[in-house]
């Protein structure tokens, strides 16, 4: 059975945010509330400052705490290893947001992060929270999978662009934007990455590129201590920690 996973090479990532922008366009996200974000960290004080960054999609955990805590099973895991939200079952209790160690879930009804409030500029029809000019075609929307424009009063998250990857040919090991056979099925953030720092493929296939990279370059997962077992791996050169801690940044 396919188990989709992602590898992000931090030695190649330039922090350009093309992934963030592509995700926002593909999934109709409000500015500042993108499912895929790049977090920036700085350590030290001027002039001895180190800036680092971490692209952060949903980790699509193998053992997701958000799925376990959802009282209505609105959050669930598909057979091919992706965590999705059924917007028709979500009650908006936000326990999944509380229980996600990676902070990758969003409730779109909060105060706007940037002004003007685009929900007022492009008001939504029906229970859609807004009606952006760059939305995906209506026929691709699927409320049962949390794909499309988010309705009011529910939680949303990165779907690994499930509307694309779920249509990929069966048994394919990797979804590579350079391969004309699979290009259309590649998640938006992977497809647009200028330095090709992202790879997407089947973690259950020993011949997949993602598995080779994880093995060859010692891929690591974030917050292993939680037992969530992310399906997103980072290549960090093997030495430095992937993200600096609060205490190492002198903010603790």
């Amino acid at each position: 059975m396919t188990k989709w996973g992602m590898v992000i090479d931090l030695e190649k990532c330039t922090g350009c945010q093309a992934c963030t922008t592509a995700c926002a366009m593909e999934n109709s996200r409000l500015p500042g509330e993108s499912w895929q974000d790049v977090l920036f960290y700085h350590e030290g004080t001027y002039p001895n400052v180190k800036l680092s960054w971490l692209p952060r999609p949903c980790m699509q955990c193998e053992n997701p705490s958000c799925v376990a805590v959802c009282p209505t099973k609105a959050t669930y895991k598909t057979e091919d290893g992706v965590v999705l939200v059924d917007w028709d079952k979500c009650i908006g209790c936000k326990y999944c947001m509380i229980a996600c160690p990676y902070g990758v879930r969003f409730y779109m009804d909060e105060k706007p992060v940037v002004q003007p409030d685009l929900r007022e500029v492009f008001p939504g029809d029906g229970d859609r929270i807004w009606n952006p000019p760059y939305k995906m075609p209506d026929h691709l929307e699927d409320r049962k999978k949390g794909i499309g424009i988010q309705p009011k009063g529910v939680v949303s998250k990165c779907t690994f662009c499930y509307h694309k990857i779920s249509k990929a040919p069966k048994g394919v090991a990797d979804l590579d934007e350079d391969d004309p056979q699979t290009r259309e099925y590649v998640p938006a953030c992977v497809r647009v990455c200028p330095p090709k720092a992202r790879y997407f493929g089947d973690l259950d296939n020993p011949n997949s590129r993602v598995n080779q990279l994880i093995a060859d370059k010692r891929g690591v997962r974030l917050k292993e201590e939680t037992g969530n077992k992310p399906q997103v791996y980072y290549l960090a050169g093997g030495g430095a920690p992937v993200i600096p801690g609060e205490r190492s940044r002198g903010r603790g």
Binding site: P71, T72, K89, I91, C93, G153
Partner: peptide
């Protein structure tokens, strides 16, 4: 809660026994 009435039917019928809620 944005969907309190949905909670009344969606919780008992979906049997998410792993959730304390």
């Amino acid at each position: 809660l944005p969907h309190p009435l949905r909670a009344l039917w969606a919780t008992p019928i979906n049997l998410q026994t792993a959730s304390p809620l």
